[in-house]
Design a binder for these strands. Structure first.
Length: 710
DNA sequence: GCAACTCCCCAATTATTGGA
DNA sequence: TCCAATAATTGGGGAGTTGC
């Protein structure tokens, strides 16, 4: 599919001022007129049968050459290749040293066979030998083998030395590998090959890439990379109507090669021109691919838009070949399947054990839990700066103790134990949760357990279910500027103590209107949430260090921390929670079409079954989903577990209202009696009894007036 | 009054990414 | 390849409100 072009064609292309650009669909070269394209076709046999495409109507504004590019790695590869071929003593070398005799030539050849030389001393010794045995001077020999001024290594040419010298550059001026656009999803990736293998492993080219080896593999990966770059350039060109690579490589002194559609450094262009075989680097089917993946992208966007209704997503899922769990995408299921493999590729949990756990969920025995607690104490207590041990540590631990679980499960166990410890420390010492580091500080903590709303929440046994495949197709890339903007705008929320709410939807939307960003309010909210987490983690770490330092000082001085120092620690979460301002927004139309009609029997059954939850004081949780499902299995009803939960919630409300009413009437009666007796009531008498204590200070917008009137 | 709804919070968890 | 950071998702739960 390659086609060569004459210089006449090139000049015609660049001189073209026509309003239409025509492109040869075979070689992708662009022509200013139908005539020049026809002439091109006549000259190139391969391109005769192909169609042409009209690209743009603003030819005079665009230099097609500007939207094509070569990549830096290729330049380097090329330079390296050329250095290999064009040895410093060859005719093409920019440094030409006349070699007078065969002996001199042989001596130099001998010197360069084992280049680069490891160190300056060895090199000097070798050069001295040559100088002594031949008529060559030191300078003549040194010119052949440039010397690194830092490391003392000598190289086969100036270019090779230049590449090497980059390794000595300070970090900020060092070359940073640019991101490469994926030809399939167009997302720019630092590690394009890994991305391809993970996300697009079902594509033909990627399958071929996986199967290939050595040179072939390189060639395929290069072709994919180039296609991605080309498609990205083409897309930007078609959308922005301006030279793309000018924007992408601003300030670089590049020169366009019409022979291969590549860009090369002006300094190395001459050398390339000699070598250039006129082979276009672009994939001839690129335009078709663009269309194909543009359609796919549109389809993906459509799915993303309709994602809000999760029911839609249930229709397309992929099953794990090992455990049968379903996932939304092929990449998600592939990633999940990796969890069944251990580091060496064997099925996890099976590498040294005979039995495979029947249940995916591992049942931790007390003995095994103790082992984990003992082994990973530092991670669980938070004494370690690193949150979790590495995979290898976990695998070794599993091997040592012959545990029949995966390393991931051990990690989860550590995380859960760590979380448990944190919660425990918060209950034991609500004002200084950060004190729970090591046994010394624990002993200093108060043993008084406060059962408030927060503590009740801790009783929650969290679901063992895991999200089935996240949609990362539209994963947000936060720029530094936007991150700063969000942090500045929502600083009060990010720096707020635990328990404070996040900004409202309306606030975020308002922010988005003022600072338009290509993201949803949910994504901004997530960003704030994550920033908040990070800030808290940092604060926690700082607090830990400060505490450790304080303890050190304390030990040295033999004294103890003052109460004031202790009070500087974070506020009580429960108290902060009370500051929460609840939403005043109203639901937008309820669906009463499927409204449940509870029979007296079923209501009684539910009330009897879930009595403990209905009569429980405020702060107690509702029955778990699993409990409700279990109930439904025992007592089949034509309703969902959610409806039963709602029923219980409403029964609970009613019960509390009744209790409140009873308490009020009792109080009213008491007041009446007191008035009759001529006494006065204390403030406490006006509170609604046990409910007030259970509420634990929760600030709520109570409709006191209406309740009073009732 | 009741069932259902929206909005919000929280903790846990997973997926993805980029640096080392 | 490992690992930490980051972004996103999930399910449980609570409060307030709506409309039949």
């Amino acid at each position: 599919m390659n086609c060569t072009r004459s210089k006449r064609d090139d000049s015609r292309m660049s001189d073209s001022n026509s309003s239409v650009i025509l492109q040869c669909m075979s070689c992708l070269h662009v022509f200013g007129s139908a005539l020049s394209l026809a002439e091109h076709k006549r000259q190139s046999q391969d391109c005769q049968t192909e169609e042409e495409a009209v690209l743009c109507g603003e030819a005079e504004k665009v230099e097609w050459a500007d939207i094509k590019c070569e990549i830096k790695e290729e330049e380097e590869e090329e330079i390296a290749e050329e250095e290999k071929e064009d040895f410093c003593c060859c005719e093409k070398s920019p440094v030409k040293v006349p070699v007078k005799t065969t002996a001199q030539s042989e001596a130099l050849q001998l010197l360069k066979t084992d280049l680069p030389h490891p160190n300056r001393e060895e090199r000097e010794a070798r050069v001295n030998d040559i100088v002594q045995s031949t008529d060559l001077t030191n300078d003549q020999v040194n010119e052949h083998f440039p010397l690194c001024s830092v490391g003392g290594k000598s190289f086969k040419g100036k270019e090779a030395l230049k590449i090497h010298e980059k390794t000595h550059l300070p970090k900020d001026s060092e070359f940073k590998k640019p991101k490469r656009p994926c030809p399939y999803c167009r997302v720019k990736q630092t590690k394009l090959m890994r991305h391809l293998l993970q996300k697009h492993y079902d594509e033909d080219d990627v399958i071929a890439l996986k199967a290939a080896n050595g040179t072939e593999k390189k060639a395929i990966s290069r072709a994919i990379r180039k296609r991605g770059i080309f498609l990205e350039n083409q897309r930007q060109y078609l959308e922005a109507k301006e030279p793309v690579y000018q924007a992408m490589r601003r300030g670089k002194d590049k020169k366009y090669c019409p022979g291969c559609d590549g860009f090369y450094n002006r300094s190395s262009f001459g050398r390339h021109e000699v070598k250039c075989k006129g082979i276009t680097s672009l994939d001839p089917s690129a335009l078709k691919i663009t269309q194909k993946y543009q359609n796919q992208l549109k389809a993906k966007q459509a799915v993303s838009r309709s994602k809000k209704t999760r029911a839609n997503d249930k229709d397309c899922f992929y099953l794990c070949s090992v455990c049968g769990e379903s996932f939304k995408g092929t990449s998600a299921v592939k990633n999940h399947e990796k969890t069944h493999l251990s580091g060496d590729g064997e099925e996890d949990g099976v590498d040294s054990l005979e039995e495979i756990p029947e249940e995916k969920r591992f049942q931790w025995s007390t003995a095994d839990t103790d082992l984990v607690l003992k082994e990973f104490e530092e991670y669980i207590t938070g004494a370690s700066e690193i949150c979790l041990p590495g995979k290898q540590d976990l695998l070794r631990f599993r091997q040592r103790h012959q545990l029949k679980c995966t390393w991931m499960q051990i990690r989860s166990k550590i995380m859960n134990e760590s979380s448990k410890t944190r919660r425990k420390s918060q209950i034991e010492c609500p004002n200084s949760s950060e004190m729970a580091i090591g046994k010394e500080s624990e002993s200093e903590m108060s043993s008084e357990i406060l059962i408030d709303e927060g503590a009740m929440k801790n009783r929650r046994v969290l679901s063992s279910k895991v999200p089935k495949g996240l949609n990362h197709s539209a994963r947000m890339k936060w720029s530094k500027e936007n991150t700063e903007l969000i942090c500045r705008e929502f600083e009060e929320y990010i720096t707020a103590p635990k328990g404070m709410r996040l900004p409202r939807k309306s606030e975020v939307i308002n922010f988005l209107q003022r600072y338009p960003m290509e993201c949803s309010h949910v994504q901004i909210r997530t960003k704030i949430m994550n920033e908040l987490k990070t800030a808290r983690m940092k604060a926690k770490r700082t607090s830990r260090i400060a505490n450790a330092q304080a303890r050190l000082v304390q030990r040295e001085e033999g004294g103890s921390l003052s109460e004031q120092d202790a009070s500087n620690l974070p506020n009580d979460e429960g108290a902060m929670k009370n500051r929460r301002v609840l939403s005043s927004k109203v639901p937008k139309g309820l669906n009463h079409s499927a409204r449940m009609k509870w029979s007296k029997e079923n209501t009684e059954l539910i009330c009897r079954e879930f009595e403990e939850y209905i009569t429980a004081p405020k702060g107690m949780r509702l029955p778990r989903k699993s409990e409700v499902i279990n109930f439904l299995q025992r007592h089949p009803m034509e309703c969902s577990h959610v409806q039963i939960r709602t029923k219980i919630m409403n029964e609970l409300k009613t019960a509390r209202m009744k209790a409140k009413g009873t308490s009020r009437s009792a109080n009213a009666q008491a007041r009446l009696v007191q008035r009759e007796e001529g006494g006065s009531l204390s403030e406490q008498d006006f509170l609604p009894g046990d409910i007030s204590s259970a509420e634990n200070g929760e600030v709520r917008k109570e409709k006191t007036s209406s309740a009073e009137s009732q």
